[in-house]
Write a protein that binds this DNA or RNA. Sequence first.
RNA 1: GGGCCGGUAGAUCAGUGGUAGAUCGCUUCCUUGGCAUGGAAGAGGCCGCGGGUUCAAUUCCCGCCCGGUCCA
Length: 913
Amino acid sequence: MLEEEYQLDYFKTQGFVRKICKACGSAFWTRDPSREVCGDAPCEPYNFIGDPIFRPHTLDTMREAYLSFFEKQGHTRVERYPVAARWRDDIYLTIASIADFQPFVTSGIVPPPANPLTISQPCIRLNDLDSVGKSGRHLTTFEMMAHHAFNTPTEEIYWKDRTVELCDQFLASIGGDINNVTYKENPWIGGGNAGPSVEVLMGGLEVATLVFMSLGRQKTEGQGYDLKGEMYYPMKLRIVDTGYGLERLVWASKGSPTIYDAVFPEMVSHVMNAAGLDHMLDNKEYTKILSLNAKFAGLMDISGTNLFNLRKKVAAAIDISPDKLDKMITPVEKVYAIVDHSRCLAFMLGDCIVPSNVREGYLARLVIRRTLRLMNDLKIEEPLADMIEQQTKILGDRKFEQDISVVREIIDRETEKYAATLERGTRIVQKVAKTYKAKSQRVPLAEIMTLYDSHGIQPEMVKEIAAKEGAVVDLPDNFYSIVADMHSESKHEKEEDNTTKYTGRVTALPPTKKLYYEQPSDIEFEAVVLDFFDEYAVLDQTLFYPEGGGQPADTGTLVSAESMVRVDGVVKVGEVVLHHIAGGVLRRGDRVKGMVDEERRWSLMRHHTATHILLHATKEVLGAHIHQAGAQKGAESSRVDIRHFKHITPDELRRIEIAANRMIMTSQPVEISVEDRTKAEQKYGFSLYQGGVPPGREIRIVKVAGDIEACAGTHCRSTGEVGSIKIIRVEHIQDGIERIEFAAGIAAIYYMQHMEQIVTASADTLSVQFENLPATVTRFFTEWKDQKKEVERMSARLVELEMRTLVGETAGGITIVVKRIDLPQKELSAIASSVAEKGGIALIAGAGETARVVLASGDSRVNAGEIIGQVCSLLGGKGGGKPTLAQGGGPELGQLDLALKVGRERILASLHV
RNA sequence: GGGCCGGUAGAUCAGUGGUAGAUCGCUUCCUUGGCAUGGAAGAGGCCGCGGGUUCAAUUCCCGCCCGGUCCA
């Protein structure tokens, strides 16, 4: 980025000088002419530890100081957004304050909620999960305090000078000495945007970043810049994007050894107590070690094996062995991590994330399990749910949507599930370890991979358990990257959307007038063909609803003066609707009459409105956390996937069905309006985006029986028109996601009739009233089982009787029985086996639908498996088995006696008699 | 959404293309004054569901259902 971008009047009038850092070579601005380094780590160590650079603040007082400062400076205070980024489909968690306003505000499509504004946005970043607790400064959850100004070509709010001035003034307002502030030039590129940026450094700590977002990847008329090989052009909006780390400011205001002691001291001492480490808090030696640790960690990257280097440095500084230091400090680091993670979970679950094995739910589970593991390491008995509840109380008025009792239930369930996984895992590992120990082999890497991938067992745990069993494990250092490589190999290419190829052709056409919104209950319309290509017709207006939002397209016919064609698919490209024509041609300029298939359209509308009703009913019965995770409408049935932390019980399902049908019976009007996006978000919250996030400044709001969603689908005029909803089944799609399949309107009746038929047919077969069906079926089933046992007993008796009458010949001192007994195969085997047990040989055949033959041999000279093959081939079949017992058969019953004769000869031949 | 592992007695799990097993638990009996225990016998299985291959499938193949798990 160009150097002159940073030549601010403010710097000049305030007596700043631009210098080059002696350590890293970066340019920075300072009021102190004698300063030689930029002030950033690692050029400058953390010198605020033990020597605070601001007046002491807690999280609450610092946040308030910030927000009220910017309010006084003409900014509007905006409520925080949820940590689950439900208004975005590209990220799961809110990672920065600017994320709240992407993509529609930042791209200029939607005006900001206020301009300029100030906000303190809780953010969650899990990329440095490993360093949390160890570095003294990393957190999974932090609040990014920010003030944003959105400058348009016509309205300038403020830009660089004012932003830096506000920064100086704010830092001074909390007691900072602005003579020690440096502004380091650090051009910013990320998320498709770029611009000049300065890091605000004090006491060795980066307390804020001021970004001036002014370039984008989209080509505009202005001069382009080549940044890291990509071209960037001036944006329509120039955005002041600032980020002040609330936790860091509090840390610097207290000068405590670690950020954790500054940010959540009550919880740290609470967890220390729970872990039996309370004595460490007052110990001066510990405080000194932790400070040193944080100072050194601030100067280096501590991920992976670098942690050991950190230990070595700290140990050398206080003159003890790295091992001893490690033993002292590790438990404390774990306490810090537990406190951080439980706070993270309070936000995640409080903002209605449901743990699962998909999407953000997976991230929540990851944090939960990690925390449980750490707690287990420290032998903390206190339930995790208690800790999270405490965190929630400490966070106080941060406005959580989820009820704390639900949070507790979720955590308790997750704790149990994890315990079960561990128990199951331990057994599996023990078994594997024993197997390899018996073979005196090392447990191979492939085995460890399977254990991790398929059973969720951490390799460290495998090593530990295997060691107890006396087995050795092959575990490379880069285990996780091997796993990652393995997964990336099985990536599939994304399917290409075949409609995108029409984009070019379609941009020349005017937007199609959408009659399906204006007159959703009409089925006939007239239109003019504007274009026809590749079997697609474009009309000036249409009643045909294109597929979208989980609602399939309408079908129907188009009639012109010369022909009648069938519409079998409808898609939308941009604002133009394409009708796919099956067999037939239309010409540009044709006047056509369109007719939508009425029953299908009505059925789709009913199912769509029913989806909204059902979602609302589910929320009523199951709780606030219910969010739609996907939906598919159809003409016969539809389904809606919801996030929930346990199985929906049959009773809950019945209650949902009743609640939904009550909403239908009261026949409330369905209200549809187009509203300003920002206002709608503020009015209704982000639960608007159940079915995804539509683009645009304005969004279509559909209100159905208390359910309010952004939705582009066609709907009934009132809930009453839906007629009825019948839940067909509930399915457990993935952990944390339940799928409810249902039918609405006539389809619901069809379904119930179908069920009735099944019941009636079953009842007829048993000649009972259908009310008696369950009892009768149960009786029949038990009787069937009893009789099966009875048959077994009688068979055993039959075998016994047969045995008594069995007469064999003797050849070479061995009893040989060759006989035809018409019993099932199982009994034949039993008879033959008991002859063989006494050292004899038995060839027994029986006739059923096919011929069955069993040969049992109690003499090693006679190989039953070999002989049976020859016997069975005479019967037109095959056979086989073990040398001692073989079975077979074939379709040719008439050959049975011949087969026995040949078999007998073969046996005698084998015995050489 | 993609990948992987699994479903066998009440529980935990072996096992096999050819008569379904172990351990614990359960029932009864014996041992004992009673208990812990010890001994003996016994009950308990649509081998997840449906289809295919085969003379024969719990076992092999395909589809579905259910559970677990890793990744985006």
